[in-house]
Simulated assay, not measured.
Amino acid sequence: MKKERFEAITDAVMAIIITIMALEIELPNLSEVGVNDFLVQIIIYIISYAFIAILWINHHNIFKYVKIVDHTTLWLNFLLLFSTSLIPLATRTIDELFYDNKSHIIFALVFGSATLFYFLLDERSLKLSGDTRTADTRKMNIIAIVLFALAIPLSYVNVYMSSAIFVLVPTAYFLLPRKFLNKNIAN
């Protein structure tokens, strides 16, 4: 299959996922509690949105040098899209039941599975393209998977500990490309 069709379906699904998340935002009542709940909802939405944006940007970058995708790559991509399509559900659940550790477990499982499938897809793209990216990207993906897995038992200790992981991982991915840009400019 040509890469363009592959990228088109990915773009379409990611756009729909973001739209569904945006439609689930509820306007608050104007009381102090309502505004505070709305702020928590927006912060959770920002984390989920940032995660999807990072997936989409990185997906584009890893397939930059791939010319044709094979059957295995298609299935890995659909597994990534499936797990990513659960992000609105996980976002809504943690928004409604923030202090319930089960909502943090769902959030960690969904984000962790999306990260795992992204990692597998990234590894597959390396085989297809012959690209030689640094090991830093591979390490970051593995660390993110481990952190999301760690968020599950930590949610039993304190939901703020798992929440810190949910903020830390997208922040690290956001800051990581700057490190690579600076390294590449220096060379």
Rank of each mutant, 00 (worst) to 15 (best):
L86W: 12
R5S: 10
I68K: 14
I16G: 02
I68R: 13
S125G: 03
R124K: 15
M14W: 03
T115Q: 15
F180V: 14
H59A: 04
I54C: 05
L154V: 00
F180K: 09
V69Y: 14
N77P: 03
V110R: 09
M161Q: 08
I44D: 02
I44V: 14
N61C: 00
E4A: 08
N61D: 13
K127S: 11
I94G: 09
S48F: 05
F107S: 12
A90R: 00
E26V: 13
K139G: 00
K102Y: 11
R133L: 12
D136S: 14
I43W: 06
F63S: 07
K2E: 15
S48L: 05
P88C: 12
T73C: 15
L86M: 15
F6M: 09
F82C: 11
A22F: 10
I68Q: 14
Y65D: 09
L120D: 02
L55N: 10
N101T: 07
I9K: 00
S103R: 04
T137F: 13
A90I: 06
I16V: 11
H59C: 01
N187D: 09
K102N: 15
V69W: 03
Y45P: 10
W56T: 00
A186M: 10
Y99H: 09
D70G: 07
T171Q: 01
R178D: 00
N61H: 13
I17V: 15
I46C: 15
F38K: 04
K64M: 06
L121W: 03
N58K: 05
L80G: 09
S129T: 07
V110Y: 04
F117D: 04
K183S: 01
P153Y: 09
L79C: 13
R133F: 13
Y45C: 06
I57K: 06
V33T: 15
S155M: 04
N182W: 07
V40P: 00
F111R: 02
D70I: 10
A135K: 11
P153T: 11
V169W: 07
S163R: 10
S48C: 12
E7F: 06
D70W: 09
H59E: 03
L80N: 05
D95K: 11
